[in-house]
Structure formats: C-alpha cells, structure tokens
Design a protein around this nucleic acid. Structure first.
Lengths: 134, 134
DNA sequence: TTATCTGCAAAATGTTTGCATGCAC
DNA sequence: GTGCATGCAAACATTTTGCAGATAA
C-alpha cells in the first residue's frame, strides 16, 4: 500500500495508522486531528511521529500539505497533487474544488514566466453557507 | 496618506515608517525585513510594533498578507487586493502576476458554491530562472 | 544484527500579549 | 489630560530536533 516499502522506508504500525487516518478522512485534518484519531488504536504514539510521518509522505508525494501560518497545517491524503480548495474562515472546514481548466491555464502562465513549476495553491477563503448565517 | 487618521488610528512616526517601507518595496518583504529597513531611520522601533502595524494595515485592507507556515509571512503593500504570485522555492523571491481572467473565473466558481468570498490565494511555487541553474 | 524509527523532552521559530511608560490628539 | 501606541520581555503555538532505547528487515 502506497509503496512505503518499495521506496526504502520501513513499514511500521505507526506509519500505517497515520496513512490510514489520512486516506480515510475527507476533512483535510491537521496533525493534531490525525494524532487524536490514530491514538484510538495506538495509545502510545507520539505527536512527533505523526509530524515525521506526514513529512515523509509529503516527500513521497503521497499527501498534499496546506500551510497556514496562524493555525495548524492541514493535510490531504486523498489527492496529493495540488488542487483548488474552498476554506471557511468561520469553521475552518476545507472542501475540494474541481477546476481543471483553471489549473491548466494557470500552470501554463507560470511556465511561460520561465519557472520550473513545483506546485501551486489555488484556494478561496470565505464563509461557508452554514457560517454565513451567524 | 492611506487614511490612518481618517479611520481613527493615530499617525505615529513608527506607523508611517512601516507604511513607507511597505509601499517602497516591490519584494513582498517579511516583518523581519521591514524591521531591518525601518530601523535605519528609527533605531528604537521594536519588532512588536512592526507586527502590530502590519496587522493594523491588514485590517484596513492596505496590505496583503501571504502566509507561510514554515517561514515568515510576506507582505504586499502595493497591491492589497488578492492577486496571483510566483514564489521561488529556491531564493524565496515573490513576483506578482497579472491574470485578471483567471481571478474573475475563479471567483465566480467559489461564489457558485455558496460561499461569501473574502479572499483567495492563487500562487505558484517553483524555481525561478536564476535558481533553475543550480 | 543493524540501521532506521519511535517516544520523550527540550529547542527552535514566528508571532502575540501584558504591562508600564510615552506620546498623538 | 486622556487614551491609544510603543518597547520590552515573557508567553504562545506549532513544528523540529537530540538522544537513548526499540524494532523492522
């Protein structure tokens, strides 16, 4: 699964648990949330291990990291290639968007500028329908 | 200038200096860099004041903040509305992009999802022409 | 067997805050 | 004169790291 072994990494129970938590959640969880989930079955795991595993998976391009300076980073274990998101400033929820034309067009522009493109961030911040009501 | 006074804020030398540093730099400086610049003329200013001023200007929609979790946030005092950027992972340089059609289209999509839109982030990460050579 | 991984605690980083003093108005 | 702003240092939040013991291969 995901080829940790194939790439020379050891397949530890902790890594499997973090990976499962990431793949099973559609909510773009933070390390804190992954930690809480994983601890249900691995009470002895440490946050440091979660941080390290997430970093490893990021290097393997198996998760996508969304950085937030004021708050915790969030992780997408379901779609590791960069893609657009809707981020609610009220409740912190994050949902995926499908905008393939946008991504394609944007990518072309960046490359035309002479950049070797490594990734992108196409995120929209606002209030989700639920949070608008308050 | 910029109407700090008009909005009920006091016009202090520190605030003016930070504002000037922001408007004069096209490099999307960090607080650290603004601090270094401002200190040339105000040796007694503190970093806390720069942080507080930048926060104030952000609330006034006079600067745009670009968050980076691993590194310092960067600030654009020349164009406060959200707009696309090219960010070099090698040297950290940031340059503005003009993609009005992209922004318009993207905005429509987000609003169609029922969001009250507050801002967005359309950034591209890669290696600039200079850094590609290394 | 052995190099990698883990848990723990401490450190590092960027940012925010409390408080006494200073200054814009 | 009054209250907002500043400087300083301490507090904060998140993430990273050093190290000794554990474990996958």
């Amino acid at each position: 699964m995901v080829g940790l072994r194939a790439k020379g990494y050891r397949l530890t129970p902790q890594r499997l648990a973090v990976l499962r938590a990431l793949v099973e959640s559609p909510h773009h969880p933070s390390v804190e949330q992954i930690y809480g989930q994983v601890r249900l079955e691995h009470p002895m795991i440490s946050q440091a291990t979660v941080y390290r595993t997430v970093e490893t998976l990021k290097e393997m391009t198996e998760v996508l990291e969304l950085e937030f300076s004021g708050a915790s980073n969030r992780y997408d274990g379901r779609r590791a290639e960069p893609h657009p998101h809707l981020v609610c400033r009220g409740c912190g929820s994050i949902q995926d968007l499908e905008l393939p034309a946008l991504v394609r067009e944007a990518t072309e522009v960046a490359e035309r500028a002479g950049y070797e493109l490594l990734g992108h961030r196409l995120d929209f911040y606002g209030l989700c329908p639920r949070c608008r009501g308050r």
